[in-house]
C-alpha cells in the first residue's frame, strides 16, 4: 500500500496538470449534478410545504345531528392515512370565509355555508390516488353531501415532482457517465505515461492486482477531491442564489457526504473500467 501511495504521489508530481484536469473535470461534472440536485431538493422542499396543506373537506348535510357527526369523525380518525380530523361548524366556516375574503365579508351570512369535516392526511399519504381513495370512502357516509379536495391541484403537484425526480435522476446518471468517461481517459493517459514502470513491474513478476492498485487509489482520491470541490462550488452557488434571488436549502450532512462518496465511487469505477482495458496496451 505504501508503494502504491508513493506511486500515486509520483504520478501527481510528474503530471500535475493531468491530475488537476482530472480533479477539475470530475468536480465540474459533479457540480452540474450538485446544482441540479440542489434545484430538485428545493423544488421538493417547496412541494412538501405546499403538499402539507392538502386537505379533504367533507361537507355535512344541514340536518345532521352532532352525535352523527361525532361518530363519523371517530370512524374517519381510525383510517391509517389520516393525521387529523376536525369539525368546522357553519359559524366557523363563515368566520373563515370572512377572514379569507376580507372585502366580501358582508355578503356571507351563517345560513349560506354548510358545516364540514376537515381531514388532514399523514405525510406519505398525500399522493393523488390515496387522496381520491379517502375522498371516495367519505362519500359513502350518508351524512356527507359533497367532498372537495382540489383533485387537479393534487395531481399537478405530483406531476411536477415526478418530472423533477426523473429529470434529476436522468441528468445525474448522464453526468456520472461523463465523469466515468473522463476518468477513464485520464487513466489511459496515466497508464501510457507510466508504461515503462508497468512493463518492468510485469517483467519482474508483479501481479496484475498490484499493478492496478495505484491506478484505483488514484481514481478514488481524485473522485474524493472532485467531490469535495464540487460540494464547495455547489455551496458557493447556493449562498450566491440565497443572497441575490431566493432563500435556498442546502444539502444536509448525510447528503453532502453521500455526494463525496459518490464522487469517490465514480472515480473508482472509472479507474477500474479503464485500467483493465489499457494495461493490455503496455507490454
Amino acid at each position: 500500500m505504501r508503494l502504491a501511495l508513493r506511486e500515486v504521489a509520483l504520478g501527481m508530481r510528474r503530471a500535475p496538470l493531468l491530475g488537476m484536469l482530472s480533479v477539475t473535470t470530475i468536480a465540474f461534472s459533479l457540480f452540474a449534478f450538485g446544482l441540479f440536485s440542489l434545484v430538485a431538493l428545493n423544488i421538493r422542499e417547496a412541494l412538501r410545504a405546499v403538499e402539507s396543506q392538502v386537505e379533504i373537506r367533507a361537507f355535512v348535510a344541514d340536518s345532521t345531528s352532532v352525535d352523527d357527526v361525532g361518530r363519523a369523525m371517530e370512524d374517519v380518525a381510525t383510517y391509517r392515512e389520516v393525521e387529523r380530523v376536525e369539525y368546522v361548524s357553519p359559524d366557523q366556516a363563515l368566520e373563515r370565509a370572512r377572514q379569507d375574503l376580507g372585502e366580501f365579508k358582508d355578503v356571507f351570512d351563517s345560513a349560506f355555508l354548510p358545516g364540514s369535516i376537515d381531514i388532514r392526511l399523514r405525510d406519505g399519504f398525500r399522493d393523488p390516488a390515496t387522496v381520491k381513495s379517502v375522498a371516495d370512502r367519505l362519500r359513502a357516509f350518508p351524512i356527507i353531501e359533497d367532498v372537495r379536495y382540489g383533485e387537479e391541484w393534487v395531481s399537478k403537484l405530483h406531476r411536477i415532482r415526478t418530472v423533477a425526480t426523473v429529470a434529476g435522476v436522468t441528468l445525474g446518471l448522464a453526468f456520472a457517465a461523463v465523469a466515468v468517461i473522463v476518468i477513464g481517459a485520464t487513466i489511459r493517459m496515466a497508464v501510457l505515461a507510466r508504461g515503462p514502470e508497468i512493463s518492468i513491474m510485469r517483467m519482474v513478476g508483479a501481479t496484475d492486482s498490484f499493478i492496478r492498485r495505484p491506478f484505483l487509489i488514484d481514481g478514488f482520491l481524485k473522485g474524493i477531491a472532485g467531490g469535495l470541490l464540487a460540494l464547495l462550488l455547489t455551496w458557493l452557488a447556493s449562498v450566491l442564489i440565497t443572497r441575490t434571488f431566493i432563500q435556498t436549502e442546502f444539502f444536509d450532512a448525510t447528503l453532502a457526504a453521500s455526494g463525496v462518496v459518490g464522487g469517490a465511487l465514480i472515480g473508482l469505477l472509472g479507474s477500474a473500467f479503464s485500467v483493465n482495458r489499457h494495461l493490455r496496451l503496455v507490454r
Binding site: P196, E197, S199, I200, R202, M203, V204, G205, A206, T207, D208
Partner: peptide, 21 residues
Amino acid sequence: RREVPLLRRKLGVVFQDFRLL
C-alpha cells in the same frame, strides 16, 4: 494468467535497450 507473475519471479530478463527508469 494469474500464475504468470509467480513464474516470472523464477526468471530474470535483460534487454538490449536496458529499460531503466
